[in-house]
């Protein structure tokens, strides 16, 4: 492989890897990929019941924790289908390509 092509392959692979990592961090940096869930979004929407009991009778109770239903590009694949996309599954092949391109290739002596 020519030196220029080799450098291009490495640069492109690193760009893919860097973008995958940035996307992961920008969407929360969670371990596993998840896609926006309509069911979770509907559950997490304010229906007003919780607020009716805020401070009821002087009781101080914390709100029920929430499972976030937004898209998260995770470090690891979460399972089948689209949830297989992750930093590891996207950047992995890119890193592999760049390693192959960077692999020192000795030229045999002509003698």
């Amino acid at each position: 492989m020519g030196a220029v092509r080799r450098v291009l392959v490495i640069v492109c692979s690193l760009a893919v890897t860097a973008q995958a990592v940035v996307l992961c961090l920008a969407t929360g940096g969670r371990s596993f990929t998840r896609f926006a869930s309509k069911e979770l979004a509907a559950m997490n929407r304010e229906h007003g019941l919780e607020s009716l009991f805020d401070g009821a009778g002087g009781a101080v109770v914390q709100d029920l924790p929430t499972v976030q239903g937004e898209f998260t590009f995770g470090w690891l694949p979460a399972g089948g289908g689209l949830e297989n996309l992750s930093v590891v599954s996207v950047a992995g092949p890119a890193v592999l390509v760049s390693l192959l391109a960077a692999w020192p290739c000795r030229r045999r002596s002509l003698n």
Partner: peptide, 21 residues
Amino acid sequence: KDRQVFFQSDAPFEKIEGQSN
């Protein structure tokens, strides 16, 4: 309506969290 149950369990990479209404 509002979520009624939230559950959590420790796992190696992140806590498993879920809910139901």
